[in-house]
């Protein structure tokens, strides 16, 4: 229907779209290049430039030696913190979200619509409305300034998204399939395990990618509920910027930024299709 030959009009379109793409890549290119340039070089020229000698050492420094606040262990401990929060919280919220989504989509129980409606309201409730209660709850159960506290928060709050994703996916499973299985004698869990779960990989991948990306990138709770050595990497990056405000270390900082962004970027590159599906699924609530 639409031609694919190179008419002047189409050349113009290609030109426009690729120059936009180049513009979109500038921040990534800049931070990648700077991560292998020395601080002196950056200060002399600018953030925009080709490395004269490749300072791979920046990465080692950023990873293990750099000083944030009083400790000089690089961002390694903070990366570990982020992983220790993101991975368990992603798993917990996905598992329970899948079961809850399965329950509200394929079973009828008293109050199901009502409770599902409230859970989806959680998609819209700003974090600022929950900050104060979480502070008090975490303090009272002794989880303030712990990774477990962050896992708890993200596991519970994540349920709004995971339940919604799974419910919207499972709703397309024919009810007759559940009826057939019930007549065959399968119960709630067996139907989930044998029939629903084998159909679930696409939505579970979407959910896991979405949750992991969100929790890894989250900043507000990290900076509010943890300090010092307990902070996730997003909060540590801000602390790092503040710490070096007087003597910027742009090379090492760029390396740190690259390291911090790497897990979600990798997930995006490997599972881009599922990432986009999560984005659009989240939009059509």
């Amino acid at each position: 229907m639409r031609d694919t030959t190179f008419t002047p009009g189409r050349i113009l379109i290609y030109l426009a779209v690729w120059s936009l793409a180049a513009a979109w890549l500038v921040p990534l290119a800049v931070v990648m290049l700077n991560s292998v340039r020395t601080a002196e070089e950056i200060v002399q020229t600018s953030m925009i430039g080709w490395p004269e000698h490749w300072a791979w050492d920046n990465y080692r420094t950023a990873w293990a030696d750099f000083c944030v606040a009083q400790t000089c262990a690089g961002i390694r401990p903070y990366m570990l913190n982020s992983a220790l929060v993101s991975i368990p919280a992603t798993i917990i919220s996905t598992v329970f979200g899948a079961v809850a989504g399965y329950a509200v989509s394929l079973w009828r129980f008293p109050g199901d619509r009502w409770i599902y409606g409230v859970v989806t309201l959680g998609l819209f409730l700003p974090q600022q409305m929950r900050l104060l209660p979480w502070t008090i709850v975490l303090r009272d159960v002794g989880l303030i300034n712990t990774l477990t506290g962050l896992v708890l928060i993200h596991s519970i709050q994540g349920l709004s998204f995971t339940t919604l994703f799974c419910r919207n996916y499972y709703i397309a499973i024919p009810r007759e399939l559940i009826g057939a299985a019930r007549i065959d004698g399968a119960g709630f869990f067996r139907i989930f395990r044998r029939i629903v779960l084998p159909l679930s990989p696409p939505i579970l991948i979407v959910t896991v990618i979405w949750q992991f990306t969100h929790i890894w990138n989250e900043f507000l709770y990290g900076v509010t509920f943890t300090t010092g050595q307990q902070q996730p990497v997003t909060a540590a990056l801000i602390a790092l910027s503040a710490a070096v405000a007087d003597v910027p270390q742009h090379g090492v900082q760029s390396a740190a930024v690259m390291i911090a962004a790497l897990p979600t970027l990798l997930v995006y590159l490997l599972g881009g299709r599922y990432f986009v599906r999560g984005l659009t699924a989240g939009a059509v609530k």
């Binding site: 779209v17 690729w18 936009l20 793409a21 979109w24 890549l25 500038v26 921040p27 990534l28 800049v30 931070v31 700077n34 950056i42 200060v43 600018s46 953030m47 925009i48 990306t213 890894w216 990138n217 989250e218 900043f219 997003t234 909060a235 990056l237 801000i238 910027s241 910027p248 742009h250 900082q253 930024v257 911090a260 962004a261 979600t264 970027l265 997930v267 995006y268 590159l269 881009g272 990432f275 986009v276 984005l279």
Partner: peptide, 29 residues
């Protein structure tokens, strides 16, 4: 192209905000 226009969505605002602060900083950007 689609991946290029969407990749910022996969990255933390903390990361992108930091990078933009460098680019827009008159002293080094």
């Amino acid at each position: 192209l689609r991946s290029i226009f969407l990749y910022p969505m996969a990255v933390s605002f903390v990361v992108t905000g930091t990078v933009w602060s460098w680019l827009l900083n008159p002293g080094v950007g």
